[in-house]
Design a protein around this nucleic acid. Structure first.
Length: 373
DNA sequence: AAGCCGTCCAACCGCCTTATT
DNA sequence: TAATAAGGCGGTTGGACGGCT
């Protein structure tokens, strides 16, 4: 799953002509312009610098407002792009690596129940993103599922599951349901449709016991069904959620405003230097843009914990070739460069987040793993 | 060795839902 | 209540890569 190609392949950016055309089209009421239609925004693969900037900003300020985030973080990206990048790739609680057999079984079962409700499926697989699950499903689980159980049900193709019977009253993973699949439950966020995404349970929004029960009901059904089919292990896969985990689909519940920072795991922290980088770059950028709305970084000193656990970003920077004085390094990326990604780094640090098996960290590895299946 | 083909997956698009004004 | 903004979701795309011929 290591997106080694991410930073190496050509940018898929539209031409400025296309972008301009879209803008015109939108202005004229002809259809809807892409969200990134703004001229000057980057598109396509993310650069290491952009990743670093995004990570640093979110670590510091959270991501209460994705729309405003890019500008405030000094990123020439649209908010959507930032959100996707964070959710699918940069989130520190992402669990990278191969899907375990249990996870695969869970996906297959849940897909049979829910269809292409990737976000809901993801809500039951801690650390997995809807995008990842969707990709895994489309690449090999679909085939596997059909082999396991030809015919309707679990073996449904995605079309059958999602499109063929959209009215099927599949159990809905409601907000509380998601929490239920986590170890901690309370998901204060209003968007809490996913598993315990909130790091800071908002007790003021806790549902009443009755509400909770009602909301949990459909999920209990799912879990019961899962339990019937796969007594323990699949559920074990589906149930636990790291306390710091955020849902793939409800990142906003991970951290609200600037002062309500997402709680990255203890083993993750930002190197203090990154703030120099961010501040410098942002200030410079804002100066260029004449934008005075840049949020000033808090002057509060990093906590002792932060100072002691900054290996994550440090490693990341090193891997990205960014290590060193700000602005001096350039990304040393090339084909199959081993770029440091959160998941990978976790693994090297004693595997806090990795499961028993992991997706290959390179394409060759991946293919080896695939062929061994 | 070179070209073709299948696989993988990050990133994008656009619609839908929810929140806010 | 309607309009608008923002977030979320699912489907799709297309470049990179490895394996095969």
């Amino acid at each position: 799953m290591l997106p080694t190609a991410s930073w190496t392949r050509p940018n898929r950016a539209r031409t400025s002509e296309q972008t301009a055309e879209w803008s015109r089209a939108a202005d004229m009421g002809r259809g809807r312009a892409p969200c990134c239609a703004k001229v000057g925004l980057n598109r396509g693969s993310w650069t290491p610098q952009e990743d670093m900037r995004l990570i640093a900003y979110i670590q510091k300020h959270g991501h209460a407002n994705w729309r405003a985030l890019p500008r405030q973080a000094g990123l020439l990206r649209c908010g959507k792009s930032c959100r996707l990048r964070w959710i699918n790739y940069l989130r520190p609680d992402l669990r990278r690596g191969n899907f375990t057999a249990d996870e695969e079984a869970t996906v297959i079962k849940l897909h049979g129940l829910l269809g292409n409700k990737w976000s809901k499926i993801a809500a039951c697989l801690p650390g997995r993103t809807d995008n990842e699950i969707k990709n895994v499903w489309n690449t090999h689980l679909k085939k596997k599922a059909s082999e396991q159980k030809p015919g309707p049900g679990v073996g449904q193709s995605k079309g059958e599951a999602a499109d063929g019977d959209p009215d099927t009253p599949v159990p809905s993973l409601s907000s509380a349901s998601s929490s239920m699949t986590t170890s901690e439950g309370s998901n204060g966020g209003g968007a809490g449709e996913q598993c315990g995404t909130s790091n800071e349970p908002d007790t003021t929004d806790l549902p009443s016991p009755l509400e909770l029960e009602l909301e949990l009901e459909p999920v209990m059904d799912i879990l019961d069904m899962l339990a019937d089919a796969a007594p323990t292990e699949a559920l074990a896969t589906a149930a636990p959620m790291p306390t710091s985990s955020c849902s793939s689909s409800s990142p906003t519940t991970c951290g609200g405003g600037a002062e309500e920072l997402l709680e990255l795991p203890d083993y993750i922290d930002m190197d203090a230097d990154i703030w120099s980088i961010i501040d410098d770059d942002t200030a410079r950028l804002q100066q260029q843009q004449g934008d005075a709305t840049v949020p000033c970084r808090s002057t509060t000193k990093a906590s002792p914990e932060e100072e002691g656990t900054d290996w994550w970003l440090e490693d990341l920077e090193k891997e990205l070739g960014l290590w060193g004085p700000a602005g001096e390094s350039q990304p040393q990326v090339g084909p199959h460069d081993q770029i440091g990604y959160p998941g990978q780094l976790y693994e090297t640090e004693g595997d806090v987040a990795m499961g028993p098996s992991s997706y290959p960290q390179s394409r060759s590895d991946h293919h080896q793993a695939s062929s061994s299946e």
